[in-house]
Simulated scan of single mutants.
Amino acid sequence: MFLFVIVLHESGAGLSFSHQLSCHHFLAGFWYPYKNIFALVDELGIQPFTNWTQSAQYSPNGLEVESPIFQDVPRLPSPLGTFIYTKFLRLPIWDRLSSLPLMYAVVDFDNSDKSWRKYDTRTARELFKEFGCSERVYKEAFNPMLLVGLFAPGEQCSAAATLGMLYYFILAHQPDFDVVWCRGTVGERIFKPWIARLEQQGCEFLSRKRVTDVVLDKVSGLVTGILCGNELFSADAVVFCVGISAMQRIVASSPVLQERDEFLNTCNLGAVDVLAVRLWLDRKVSIPRPSNACFGFDSSTGWTFFDLNALHDEYQDEQVSCQSAAAS
């Protein structure tokens, strides 16, 4: 038998191997390339997702961009489909054309260590300027995409990370930008049945266990367990499925991990706070698209809002409007 420990996520009581399924307000989209997640829900025999949805972008001037369901329109060689079918209501064609030279960098970036070293030394803002993108296409197309996709403006984003996102979500294949949403909270709709299946197969989930250190075999150099205060959990392998802030706290309390550069270097990484709220309006408000992004209201902040009456089963018959909004 192979024994391993997965440190799942952070809770108010510390780090957990847990299925504490709190009802988060923040909505996560599931894009067309997420084949592993779609395969998982098929294996579980559940149907947690909406149909493919259209999206829109707004600025202080009003509606700016409408995106179709790309897999429903005639397939064109990438990136022509994305370029032609995305409906920009205000951005002139000549500004959009100024972004075409950027395709050289997208093709050149192959996600190798060499490519990361080449492009990670500059910001996304510098990259767009270097390849001749107009100021307007940057401000009204690329920077808004970064604000809601990588949660930071182009001046703070790595050019390498930007190229990776452009390729994976938008430019590799025409339908890659298509997205579905969970018809309720991800915890209830996906994690709960998934964890039930894992428990049936012998997995054990322990909640409210704060990880303080790992146990290292000095002879073999292998991790043999983790410590949660005075509790020892033996393991043949340990997987940290936590965010940057949580990992930094684990490293700060772990003399063993502090001896390894790959863990110590996580202290140099930054994290982004996301503020999410749920808004209840006292009457039904008609919203053309269920998922929407906004830009231009603040130079360093992007935000999204979602019509939960259209996305979540429990709100479909409500006589009032329920909206979810998140800003980063």
Rank of each mutant, 00 (worst) to 15 (best):
G184H: 00
A159W: 02
G270E: 10
W116D: 13
T224M: 02
E66G: 06
F131I: 09
L147N: 01
Q201E: 15
Q47W: 08
Y138M: 02
S67C: 14
S112Y: 12
R208F: 12
A235V: 10
A141G: 03
R75M: 11
W194Y: 14
L150P: 03
D72M: 10
I287Y: 03
A28I: 10
L264N: 11
E135F: 06
L269K: 07
P48W: 01
R210N: 15
P33K: 01
R283W: 08
A327M: 13
G184P: 05
F2V: 11
L163M: 00
F131Y: 15
K35W: 09
Y315P: 00
L279W: 10
R189L: 05
F142C: 02
E130N: 12
L40S: 06
R122F: 07
V211S: 04
I46R: 00
N268Q: 10
C133Q: 00
P77I: 08
T304Y: 15
L27N: 04
A160W: 03
F305D: 06
I69L: 14
L216T: 04
S11F: 08
F191Y: 14
A310K: 14
E188D: 13
I37Q: 05
I287L: 08
N36Y: 14
N143S: 01
P153W: 04
K114I: 14
V7C: 11
R197F: 02
K284I: 15
Q174S: 02
F131T: 10
S158Q: 02
V5H: 01
D108M: 15
V238L: 11
S299N: 14
G296V: 00
V5E: 02
Q54H: 09
G225E: 09
V186H: 04
L269D: 05
P77V: 08
R136K: 11
F240E: 03
T53R: 09
P175F: 05
T53N: 09
C267E: 13
P68C: 01
L76T: 05
L21H: 06
S324H: 05
S99A: 10
